[in-house]
């Protein structure tokens, strides 16, 4: 059988913690299996070689400076396929918290008397600047989903994101609902696909995968209130990862 040439993959990072890429290095044997199918040409966490010749760009982090915009546009031009990798790249993630305050205040807080030397713009997911072909959600990404997306890329099919709540998977796993124990959870409004990873392990859902297309922000707020949470705290649960989605999906309910 003729061996097909392997697509070249490059990893890049913007405003982030690089923890998503670390997830790839944590894959163990599966990473070796993936290297049978792909050539990794750029990945600063695991190799020193670099290359500008790649087919697939896997990009972590959100866009938060003018330079970022220039750089991501360059990557988009060189790559045939662009994959947004992790919460920061797909939904702006925790970086989006900055957008809730005036930019000037954020700059002062972070850089103090050096603030003038730093360029900063609002934190954005990649698709506000360039076209994104595949999304790998989660903070950090869920390994089975990373593999599923890479398989979709190889066979040239889209990877449709589930448009139902984390609760769907959580119930299939037969977890005791956190609300049953009077504990908060963003599961009812958060996009599934992580197999309720956090709740399976005794944690709560932080909505790191972004909200479903049409979240019932109103109903969710009522539930939170009923369980004794204050409106401003509930809003924080929504904005922790999902600031850019506020205008469309939940801001109205909290005004």
């Amino acid at each position: 059988m003729k061996k097909r040439s392997k697509p070249k993959v490059a990893f890049f990072d913007f405003t982030d913690c690089e923890g998503c890429q670390l997830q790839i290095t944590n894959m163990g044997d599966t990473l070796l299996e993936l290297t049978e199918l792909f050539d990794i040409v750029n990945f600063r966490e695991i190799m020193s070689e670099k290359s500008d010749d790649y087919d697939i760009a896997v990009v972590e982090g959100s866009i938060s400076t003018d330079n970022d915009i220039k750089r991501i546009k360059g990557i988009r031009e060189r790559a045939k396929i662009l994959v947004a990798f992790g919460s920061c790249a797909t939904i702006a993630g925790v970086n989006g918290i900055k957008n809730r305050a005036p930019l000037e205040l954020a700059r002062q807080r972070v850089y103090g008397d050096k603030a003038d030397t730093v360029n900063t713009i609002k934190a954005m997911p990649l698709d506000e600047v360039v076209k994104v072909d595949y999304y790998i959600l989660n903070c950090p990404p869920y390994v089975p989903e990373i593999i599923a997306v890479f398989k979709s890329i190889l066979i040239g099919k889209p990877y449709p994101l589930p448009n139902y709540a984390v609760c769907v998977e959580c119930k299939m796993n037969e977890n005791v609902c956190r609300y049953e124990k009077d504990e908060e959870c963003m599961g009812p409004v958060t996009r599934a696909g992580c197999n309720s990873w956090c709740i399976n392990n005794g944690n709560r859902c932080y909505a790191c995968r972004g909200l479903v297309e049409n979240p019932a922000a109103d109903g969710a707020k009522d539930i939170f209130l009923k369980y004794g949470f204050k409106a401003e705290d509930i809003l924080k649960h929504f904005t922790l990862y999902n600031d850019p989605q506020g205008e469309k999906k939940y801001d109205r309910e909290f005004k």
């Binding site: 139902y164 709540a165 609760c167 769907v168 119930k171 299939m172 609902c177 599961g187 009812p188 409004v189 479903v212 049409n214 979240p215 019932a216 109103d218 109903g219 969710a220 009522d222 539930i223």
Partner: peptide, 13 residues
Amino acid sequence: GRRCVACGNCTAV
């Protein structure tokens, strides 16, 4: 419908 958050729990169980 106003109260429902479409979590799907009712149908799952």
